[in-house]
């Protein structure tokens, strides 16, 4: 447990020391949103608004989480390998990615609303919607962290990441879209109970699998 916090603190330190990387991600998200704005202008259709937002978040997630294992060069990994337990390594990476993506997602929402209009948000349950965004950030980064660990073992990291990640992330995306469509329509929480439950089950399965499988990836 102690190990986990130390590793997490180190991840955050490494990120704050390289501020340009974080700003790069923010800029990437902003550019994506601006391109969407140029091609769609104001969006009035709720389904398209919702779908587009999730696609933007998905790309941001691939960009942010995809680099969780190439941040350090081989020498550092060897050092970490001798010191830390692999389960602590993967859990710290997942936790860090969740925090990073949660921030990025909220930022993306603000920029998205700014450019593509608030027409859709009238009558929406905003608290429910934002809880959905955070849950989504959790689900996406948890699933993609292990995939990123797999992809980095092949030569072509980012390409492999997309290839392996997209089909794996499908169930999460389907549930998230239906959840946030309900939240945008202003449905009561009860309507989304099933989506929430499914989301928790999938997230739980993903974290457990990462916890069990990562040690096999780690020992090289």
């Amino acid at each position: 447990m102690n190990e986990l916090w130390t590793l997490l603190r180190r991840e955050i330190q490494a990120e704050t020391r390289q501020k340009h990387v974080v700003w790069g991600m923010v800029l990437y998200t902003l550019s994506t949103i601006f391109v969407c704005y140029l091609s769609f202008k104001q969006l009035e259709d709720r389904a398209i608004w919702n779908g587009l937002l999730w696609i933007i978040i998905l790309f941001a997630a691939f960009n942010a989480v995809g680099r969780s294992f190439d941040r350090e060069a081989g020498g550092y990994n060897l050092y970490l390998y001798t010191l830390a337990h692999p389960t602590a390594v993967i859990l710290s990476k997942i936790l860090f990615n969740v925090m990073l993506l949660a921030l990025l997602t909220l930022l993306a929402l603000v920029m998205y609303v700014l450019f593509l209009g608030t027409d859709v948000l009238t009558g929406a349950d905003m608290l429910q919607f934002i809880v959905g965004l955070l849950l989504g950030a959790f689900g996406l980064s948890a699933a993609l962290t292990l995939i990123s660990g797999i992809a980095v073992k092949s030569g072509n990291n980012m390409g492999m990441m997309a290839l392996l990640g997209f089909p794996i992330i499908l169930p999460t995306m389907l549930i998230l879209m239906s959840y946030s469509a309900n939240a945008l329509a202003g449905m009561p929480w009860g309507e989304n109970a099933r989506n929430l439950l499914l989301m928790f089950i999938i997230d739980g399965a993903v974290v457990t699998l990462s916890y069990i499988l990562f040690p096999y990836l780690w020992r090289d």
Partner: peptide, 22 residues
């Protein structure tokens, strides 16, 4: 072999969720 096995197990579980549960 190791990398592929890890992906295979992960993918199969997600597939069961996608095909059986959803």
């Amino acid at each position: 072999a190791r990398v592929a096995a890890v992906y295979n197990i992960f993918a199969f579980v997600m597939l069961v969720v996608l095909l059986m549960i959803l």
